[in-house]
Design a protein around this nucleic acid. Structure first.
Length: 518
DNA sequence: ATAGGGTTAG
């Protein structure tokens, strides 16, 4: 063309986006800026879209400035693409700023905002925006919006909201939409209803690799590794091609169900049989798989030979670290935590796990000095929490704290469960520790000492099968008792089961602090 | 010539 106009430029850019080459768009945009032709809203929306795909926030912000220079801040399509771009670049606040600055909205802009929150793990905000949409806008949500809302419910583990949204899907007639169905499969699995996942999945006609992947991951989370393998087999039999994520899912499943040979076989067949090149995520699963079953040297070797950036390495070395602790491999734990701390990844967790590894190995002084170092450096480990939704209330449980709403009921239910376990031959104590398969004498000793809220005697207690347990001296139960009991459970976990560690939070001993454990 | 949805490792 002698004189390409704005439509020619934009068409070319759009063509590159459609052909999966968004990288070329910013180059074209630069070229265009050097020409006489000035971009319009169509051009900017296309360029911004390419930034979304590439998650290129820097270019995206630059183009955002051009939006203002060209006076296009009132253009609905341009603004919606900006909301989407900021969301895809993990800048939800940026997305919200654009969204709030808009003078009119349509279902696309609302969906972009909801999806932005949902994709960034901000399920609560996503549902809040959806609620606002539902109350102000006299328009039914479409399948795009519903998929994002279901995604938000999944992230929050909100089964009831998820079911309500499923109702909206049925009313809207979107049941047969595969994207919506995939979101539902994933949501039900994450919300504790794998049975519903299966039901929704089986209604999908010719499921693609994405619903299959959701099911494989879902089954894995429920400990059904064999089912994950069966689903994988089913999909390949039906000539549905697995992608990289499918392999992350299936290796994750093998890892969590101890299916090591199957997992290794899949890793080796990935490339030649399915055309998917294994990357760091797959090796992370395999490192985890090998190390969980105690094949730490192989896992270690694989970890060292995998090139990673800090973010990827956090997961790979984190997996190795946690298994090193589990199997008492101080040498590997030291190396793994060194890596994590050096690259500033999960520092507090790395300190705690390494310290616990020392403890498991009986290296009390190393454990102690690490705790001191943590305090010196000012590293603090935030306690984790879980939550469950019952009817329309959400109950949150922090590690070591049962002073939550209806905590008393929780405690009495736990006691009832414990009583039933005892009836079935599991052994327990009134203090809440439940031991399985342990000699009566040992049990009494531990339970007895514990119930007096005193130190567990230092030394070695022999238990049958030639296993020894180390128990610490002067271990007092104090306000930070969760740590203490985590420690106990860690020491003994291979030999008997300690449950219900959190219950001891009520035993407070003002005279000691966390430091006294060590 | 332009904007929105589902799967992902400790």
């Amino acid at each position: 063309m002698h004189e390409p106009n704005v439509v020619s430029w934009t068409s070319l850019m759009s063509g590159y986006v459609n052909m999966g080459r968004p990288q070329s768009v910013s180059w074209l945009y630069t070229k265009m800026s050097e020409s006489e032709v000035s971009p319009n809203g169509f051009t900017l929306a296309t360029v911004i879209n390419s930034c979304s795909i590439l998650a290129d926030l820097k270019t995206g912000k630059m183009v955002h400035a051009h939006v203002h220079i060209l006076g296009l801040q009132g253009n609905l399509v341009v603004c919606s693409s900006l909301v989407d771009m900021y969301g895809k670049c993990n800048d939800v606040d940026g997305a919200r700023m654009v969204f709030d600055s808009m003078s009119c909205w349509n279902i696309v802009s609302w969906t972009a905002m909801i999806a932005g929150y949902a994709q960034n793990g901000k399920g609560y905000e996503a549902l809040e925006v959806f609620r606002e949409f539902s109350s102000y806008i006299m328009e039914r949500p479409n399948h795009f919006m519903l998929a994002s809302v279901i995604n938000a419910c999944a992230a929050l583990g909100r089964l009831v909201s998820g079911k309500v949204t499923h109702g909206a899907v049925i009313r809207g007639g979107y049941e047969l939409n595969e994207v919506v169905a995939s979101a539902l499969v994933d949501m039900y699995a994450k919300c504790g209803s794998f049975l519903y996942s299966k039901k929704v999945f089986r209604r999908i006609r010719n499921p693609s690799f994405i619903p299959y992947t959701s099911m494989i991951v879902g089954a894995a989370k429920y400990g059904l590794g064999k089912l994950s393998l069966k689903l994988f087999e089913e999909m390949t039999d039906r000539k549905v091609m697995p992608n990289d994520v499918t392999f992350v899912g299936i290796l994750h499943a093998c890892s969590h169900s101890g299916l090591v040979d199957e997992g290794l076989g899949l890793l080796n067949s990935m490339h030649e049989k399915h055309g998917v090149m294994p990357d760091v995520r797959h090796y992370t699963c395999v490192v985890d798989m090998l190390s969980r079953v105690g094949r730490l040297d192989e896992a270690h070797k694989l970890a060292k030979s995998t090139r990673v950036n800090p973010n990827e390495g956090a997961l790979l070395w984190g997996a190795l670290l946690s298994s090193s602790r589990l199997h008492g491999r101080v040498d590997i734990a030291v190396e793994a935590s060194k890596w994590l701390i050096e690259y500033n990844q999960q520092v507090a967790g790395a300190y705690v796990t390494l310290s616990n590894t020392y403890t498991l190995a009986g290296e009390w002084e190393n454990a102690h000095s690490l705790r001191t170092e943590m305090e010196l450096v000012g590293v603090h480990k935030e306690p984790g929490c879980s939550w469950i939704e019952i009817k329309d209330s959400i109950y949150v449980f922090y590690a070591g704290d049962l002073s939550c709403e209806r905590g008393d009921e929780v405690i009495s239910l736990l006691r009832e469960l414990e009583r039933r376990m005892m009836e079935r031959g599991c052994v327990g104590g009134s203090t809440g520790l439940v031991f399985v398969d342990v000699e009566q004498e040992v049990k009494e000793k531990i339970v007895g000492l514990h119930s007096e809220r005193l130190a567990l005697a230092f030394g070695l207690i022999s238990i049958p099968k030639g296993v020894t347990i180390r128990v610490m001296k002067n271990l007092r139960i104090c306000s930070d008792c969760h740590e203490a009991f985590k420690l106990i459970s860690m020491i003994v976990e291979r030999d008997f089961v300690v449950r219900d560690v959190n219950r001891f939070h009520h035993f407070k001993d003002g005279s000691c602090t966390c430091k006294d454990f060590w």
